[in-house]
Simulated scan of single mutants.
Amino acid sequence: MNGVITPADTLGTRLTGLRGFYRAGYRSVLAYRADLLFGVIGFVIQTVLAVAVWRVLYDGHDEVAGVASSTAVAYAVLAGCIQSVVMPWQFSSLPQRVFRGQIGVDMMRPRSLISQNLAQAAGTMVGRLPIGVAGLAVGLALGGVQAPRSLLDLFASAVSILLGIANIMTINLLVSMIAFWTLETGGVMILYRFASAFLSGALIPLWFMPEWLQPIIGRLPFQAQIYAPLSIWFGTRHGGELIGTLALQLGWVLALFVLLQLVWRRAVHRVVVLGG
């Protein structure tokens, strides 16, 4: 009123400005519907194989490393669902825009480059939801998915998943910023994807890691992406340990975002050196 801009108006304006980048990410997935369809089919097959393989591995054993067969199968299915949505091969359009020289236009926009890319990444993840939902449906049909043991575990795991997604989005953008120093980022992206899949527990749960390696991986940011949310989902974290897990996830998100800001400041100077 009276021409005064309130904080709510400012926030609303910023969110409206970022909506276009979110839609761009979402539509970039739907634009290639055949690719999305094959992604759904491929992940359904992967889910069926994951359930079959883990059940064969547990054949004749009720538990391995203290983990029941049903838990291991459910973990494999849920980890695959999360990974299929939030860890695509294409992390960000930033490297392509740097390569094509479009980054100069992005830097002149009223919204920061970081917020532009995070909004676009959020849209991409939402666009890929059908892949994860299809895998989850198959896992449920095969009896390979367990529900959380309590409402507290369900709520805490939901919060943990959101923190894990924030962690993934931030690290993905950090890795993408390598494009400011080298135009060839394919090798780095592939190395990061496989390292992240292993260290996050997407491929092998940390339960089955060597005892000397578990504490090391448990302190890295990658375990906060998939292993931490699913460990809460299956009720293996209680009381102070549960709070500590969520606090560690939040701490990594904040630390990574600060690091992202620092890297971006260096990248800006790099663009100036290269002439924009």
Rank of each mutant, 00 (worst) to 15 (best):
M1W: 10
P7D: 00
A8K: 10
T13D: 14
T16C: 06
T16P: 02
F21L: 01
G25K: 07
Y26W: 15
R27C: 06
R27A: 13
S28Y: 09
L30R: 14
F38E: 00
F43G: 00
T47L: 02
V51Y: 11
V53R: 02
W54K: 06
Y58E: 04
Y58T: 05
V67P: 01
V67D: 00
A68I: 02
Y75I: 10
C81E: 10
S84M: 11
P88D: 11
Q90M: 10
Q90C: 05
S92P: 02
R97Q: 14
G104F: 02
R111F: 00
I114C: 01
A119N: 08
T124N: 13
R128Y: 05
G132H: 07
G144A: 15
G144Q: 06
D153T: 05
D153E: 14
S160N: 02
L162Q: 06
I165H: 04
I168F: 04
M177P: 01
I178A: 15
T182Y: 10
L191S: 13
Y192I: 07
R193N: 13
F194D: 09
A197S: 12
I204L: 15
M209F: 15
L213A: 14
P215R: 08
G218Q: 09
Q223I: 08
R237L: 15
L246E: 09
G251N: 02
V271D: 06
V273N: 12
G276E: 13
